[in-house]
Amino acid sequence: MKNNKLSIVLRGLIAENPVLVLVLGTCPTLAQTGNVIAALSMGIAATIVLVCSNMVISALRNIIPDTVRIPCYIVVIAGFVTVVQLVMQAYLPDLYEMMGVYLALIVVNCIILGRAEMFARKNNVVDSALDGLGMGLGFLLALLVMATIREVLGAGTFAGIEIPFLIVRDAAGVVKNSFTLPILTQAPGGFLVFGIMIAVINKIGPKKGEEKRKNFSCEGCPSATVCGRVACPENTELVTESDDRRDGGKEEA
């Protein structure tokens, strides 16, 4: 029994890591990994929201009507995001400024809505909390790994502390030589490092990940249940049909 609980947590951490294996929540992953501090705070904030919302949604799973469940989940998640926002604004104003709009955007993070839809609505409160914890920590871990790569190679620092071999100063403290790739801390570096990390995982990781990800734009997408997969590119038959209709529509217009 205890093993079972532990496996729920560990699954999110590695085997079903939400970022690196399921490729969910790409926006904050790319945006908040320019430095380690931002990644750490993003990961912790998302974990708190994920655990709390999973617990509440699981507790209410017999009350929420099936047809309006997505809006209900969004309200619960948005409520917890607001709590985290207010707490951070009060006690960590600098961090709040730094994270800016991305803190509010935890609401639309696919991982959180995805876990509510896939796990919390079918399982009890304790399991859901553990699942949220595992997934949140997996998210945090992926963010930290990526932020470490980007900050160390891009800025020559780790969490703001300079690394002596990468930034060489002379006796007066003036930077003499720095062996860094500043592009990695900017936008293109985010895409590049994320791409390379997924490639490495494809190479060394378990083959299962590839299958899980095959339809990453649809299977993992929480709106798949809303849109009935009509708009998803993988669903070629329906899309082709609508393409034909669209051409017709344009001519009429």
Partner: peptide, 27 residues
Amino acid sequence: IPALYKSLGVYLPLITTNCAVLGVAIN
């Protein structure tokens, strides 16, 4: 406007959880 719906309709549900839309409103 069924003609417009046919061309844009399939994409609309996907946009609900698009962070760019919420992002621009907040920004």
